[in-house]
């Protein structure tokens, strides 16, 4: 954490960059991280929390090794995205927004990725899967080492 903070100036405008960097490094922003950032930037933890909860990009809890994001935009929705979410949820045994106990998967939804033509779309760790019909094959693909 200290090494990350060293990369940034002690200026409030750096807040989002720091949060991104922490998110990237640890997969989430922990309470101790919030207080370290607050000390570094000399702002209150409450202000940081406000920014953290505003953006979906930041997580307050540890996330899994693989992030599975199902698009729930209108186009994907009509093409069966809700079913994909249900399937994924059942396969993984967690609800949307949660992480499996072994910290392998995190299931998330998003409200449109802007590539409606290839929907329904599922993104795993930044890789786009198009015309998804079944979730089990995707989950299996990423289950290695589980």
């Amino acid at each position: 954490m200290e090494n990350i903070l060293k990369e940034f100036e002690r200026d409030q405008k750096e807040l989002i960059h720091i949060l991104h960097r922490v998110q990237e490094e640890f997969g989430y922003v922990s309470p101790p991280a919030i207080s370290a950032i607050a000390k570094h930037l000399k702002i209150s933890e409450n202000e940081i929390y406000s920014v953290l909860t505003f953006y979906k990009a930041f997580s307050l809890e540890p996330r899994g090794k693989h992030i599975v994001t199902v698009c729930m935009g209108t186009a994907c929705h009509v093409r069966g995205a809700p079913r994909l979410v249900d399937d994924a949820s059942r396969e993984m045994g967690v609800d949307v927004g949660q992480t499996t106990p072994d910290k392998h998967f995190t299931l998330e939804t998003v409200n449109c990725l802007g590539c409606c033509a290839i929907g329904p779309v599922v993104v795993v760790d930044g890789k786009y899967h198009s015309y998804v019909k079944r979730m089990d094959s995707i989950i299996k693909e990423y289950s290695e080492g589980r």
């Binding site: 309470p31 919030i34 209150s44 933890e45 409450n46 202000e47 940081i48 929390y49 406000s50 909860t53 505003f54 307050l60």
Partner: peptide
């Protein structure tokens, strides 16, 4: 205190 969460979930609150 600050705004926490956004949209319909928005509320005034404190860190954590």
């Amino acid at each position: 205190v600050h705004f926490v969460d956004r949209g319909p979930e928005a509320v005034i609150g404190t860190a954590l």
